[in-house]
Nucleic acid binder design. Structure first.
Length: 485
RNA sequence: GGUCCCGUCGUUCAACCGGUUAGGACAACGGCCUUUCACGCCGUCAACACGGGUUCGAAUCCCGUCGUGAUCACCA
C-alpha cells in the first residue's frame, strides 16, 4: 500500500537562484531517487508584487546546471500540472470555497491598515501577536451581503482556540504547539491569489507529494498546514525539516546575501564546478559514512538515509568549497578542463567585450593581460599600494564602509544591468551618502579593479557582472573599515 | 518579548541501542618532496556549552540553565 515517493522543490521566483534552493532541492532529489520516486519542480509565484520575470528561468537553468533535474515541472510538464501556481488560480479559489462552505474558513473584511495598527499595538503591549478574530463570528448573512456589495475581503482559516497541534517530523520527532498561539491564517488574499499556506497544501495534496522536505524556517507554520489537511480531510505528507544554511559570522545567522554570496550564478561565475558545489552542499548536514567526503550524487543516492543527516545549522564555508572544487579540477582531463575554462571567462566573446575598454590603453598586444587581469578572477586583495584609496581624505572608514555597502546593495537591486543604469545608481548612492562623486567613484574603482587606474568604471562594472561586483564591493567595505582615517 | 528547532575542535561531518587516548576533513602551523609555488605525503594545535540527576560507568538517557537560530504578514 506504500505510495510511490514524490518530493518537490517549490522556489519562489523573486530573485536570483538561491543556494538554499539548491540545497533543499538536492535532498528532495536524492530522497526521491533513492526510493525510485519522482522529483517535481513547482513554481510558487503567487506574490505578484515581488515576482520577477527573469527569475523563474534563471532558477530552472541553475538547477539543471547542478544536475538536479525534475521529472515533472513547468518546462517538462507532467500529469499533475500545471506546475506554476499562477496558473492554478481557480483550483485555489475552489478549495477556499470548500472550506468556506464547511465552516472551516471565513471571510475577513479587515483592512491591511487596521491589521497594521493592530500589530503595532500588540508590539507595544508586548502581548499576544496575531489576528484578533474580529471577523471570525460574522453571521453568514452579513458576510454574504458585504461580499456581494463588493467590499474587499480575505479568507481566513478557522483554527482551534485550545488544545495543541502535533507534528511528527522524521528528523526531529514530535513537535507540540499550543493552538492558543496560532491565529487564523489568511488563505486567500484580497487580490484572489492564495497565500503560501493554502497553495502549498492544496498543491502538495493534488500533486500527491508524499514527503515534504523543506527548510526548518517552516516549522512554526506547519501546524497551520496540518490543520488545513484536516479541514480538507486529506492525509498529510511526511514532514522533514532540514537545517538552515548559515553565514560564517559570529552568530551563524541564516545565510543571507548581505554577508555571503547566495546566488548560484555567483558560484558558477566564480569557477566552481557544479559537481563540486553539489558535493559541498551534500556535506552540509549529511555524512556519507566512512569519513568519505568526495562523492557524486549517484553515490549519495546509494547510501542516503535521513539517519545520516544532522541538525546543527551548517555554516557555508567558502574555504572548504574551494578545496573540494580543487579536487574536482584535478580529476578533469586537460581537454575537459579547457572546456570548463572556455565556458566561463576565457573565451572569445568575453575578450571581445573587454577589448574596446582597453584598446586605447595598450601599447602592445600583451598589455591586454595586465590591463584586464581583474576581469578574470573573483576576489581581489586591497592590501596593495592603491588599497588606501578606498578611503578618501577627510572621510572615515565607517562612512566609506557604509557607502560601499550601499553601493553593493544598489547594484543588487538593479533590474536592468546597463552601463547607464549602473552610473545612475552609483550617482544616487553618492548623493544619499553626501559624498562628492569622485569620493565614491575612486573607492568603487579600487574595489572592483584593485587599482586606481582602470578601464572606464561603469563599462567595467557592466562587463564584470553583478555577482562579482557585489562581492568585491562588500569585501572592499570590510577592508576599508580596517584602515586608519 | 512569546513559541519552537538546535548545541562535539575556528568550520564541517563522525563516535551503532551508555564503556573510545573523542576520529576524519577544511582552515592554521611545522616538516618532507620540489629550482619556486601548488599538488601529494607526514606531523602539530584544537571540541563534548554549563549545572544537576539516572548509572559501576554519560558526549551518549532525563531535568534545568545558558547560548545560537527560526518564527510570530493579504512574503514565500
Amino acid at each position: 500500500m506504500t505510495k510511490p515517493v514524490r518530493t518537490r522543490i517549490a522556489p519562489s521566483p523573486t530573485g536570483d537562484p538561491h543556494v538554499g534552493t539548491a540545497y533543499i532541492a538536492l535532498f528532495n532529489y536524492v530522497f526521491a531517487k533513492k526510493h525510485g520516486g519522482s522529483f517535481i519542480l513547482r513554481i510558487e509565484d503567487t506574490d505578484q508584487a515581488r515576482a520577477r520575470s527573469d527569475s523563474e528561468g534563471a532558477i530552472m537553468k541553475s538547477l539543471h546546471w547542478l544536475g538536479l533535474s525534475w521529472d515533472e515541472g513547468p518546462d517538462v510538464g507532467g500529469p499533475k500540472g500545471p506546475y506554476r501556481q499562477s496558473e492554478r488560480q481557480t483550483i485555489y479559489q475552489e478549495h477556499a470555497q470548500i472550506l468556506l462552505d464547511r465552516g472551516e474558513a471565513y471571510r475577513c473584511f479587515c483592512t491591511p491598515e487596521r491589521l497594521g495598527i493592530l500589530r503595532e499595538e500588540q508590539r507595544q503591549a508586548k502581548g499576544r501577536m496575531g489576528y484578533d478574530y474580529r471577523c471570525r463570528d460574522l453571521s453568514s448573512q452579513e458576510s454574504d451581503r458585504r461580499a456581494q456589495e463588493g467590499e474587499p475581503f480575505t479568507i481566513r482559516l478557522k483554527m482551534p482556540k485550545e488544545g495543541f497541534s502535533l507534528m511528527t517530523d522524521l528528523l526531529r520527532g514530535e513537535v507540540r504547539r499550543s493552538y492558543e498561539e496560532l491565529d487564523d491564517q489568511v488563505l486567500l488574499k484580497s487580490d484572489g491569489f492564495p497565500t503560501y499556506h493554502l497553495a502549498n497544501v492544496v498543491d502538495d495534496h493534488l500533486m500527491e507529494i508524499t514527503h515534504v522536505i523543506r527548510a526548518e524556517e517552516w516549522i512554526p507554520s506547519t501546524p497551520k498546514h496540518i490543520r488545513l489537511y484536516e479541514a480538507f480531510g486529506w492525509e498529510a505528507p511526511v514532514w522533514i525539516h532540514m537545517p538552515l544554511l548559515r553565514n560564517p559570522d559570529k552568530n551563524k545567522s541564516k545565510i543571507s546575501k548581505r554577508k555571503n554570496p547566495v546566488s548560484l550564478l555567483f558560484y558558477k561565475e566564480a569557477g566552481i564546478l557544479p559537481s563540486a558545489l553539489v558535493n559541498f552542499l551534500a556535506l552540509m548536514g549529511f555524512s556519507f559514512g566512512e569519513d568519505v567526503e568526495k562523492f557524486t550524487v549517484e553515490q549519495m543516492i546509494e547510501v542516503f538515509s535521513f539517519e545520516k543527516v544532522s541538525l546543527g545549522g551548517p555554516v557555508f564555508d567558502l574555504d572548504k568549497l574551494n578545496w573540494i572544487n580543487g579536487l574536482y579540477m584535478r580529476d578533469l582531463s586537460e581537454e575537459a578542463l579547457l572546456a570548463e575554462m572556455e565556458a566561463i571567462w576565457l573565451n572569445r566573446a568575453y575578450f571581445a567585450k573587454l577589448l574596446p575598454l582597453v584598446q586605447n590603453r595598450i601599447k602592445n598586444l600583451n598589455d591586454f593581460i595586465d590591463q584586464t587581469a581583474f576581469f578574470f578572477n573573483v576576489e581581489l586583495s586591497y592590501d596593495t599600494p592603491d588599497g588606501p584609496l578606498l578611503l578618501p581624505k577627510n572621510r572615515t572608514p565607517k562612512e566609506m564602509g557604509e557607502a560601499l555597502t550601499e553601493a553593493a546593495e544598489a547594484m543588487d537591486r538593479m533590474e536592468s544591468w546597463t552601463i547607464e543604469a549602473i552610473e545612475a545608481a552609483l550617482r544616487t548612492v553618492a548623493e544619499e551618502k553626501n559624498l562628492k562623486v569622485k569620493e565614491l567613484f575612486m573607492p568603487v574603482r579600487v574595489a572592483i579593479s584593485g587599482k586606481k587606474a582602470s578601464p572606464p568604471l561603469f563599462e567595467s562594472i557592466e562587463a564584470l557582472g553583478k555577482e562579482r561586483v557585489r562581492f568585491r564591493l562588500r569585501k572592499a567595505a570590510e577592508y576599508v573599515k580596517t584602515l586608519q582615517s
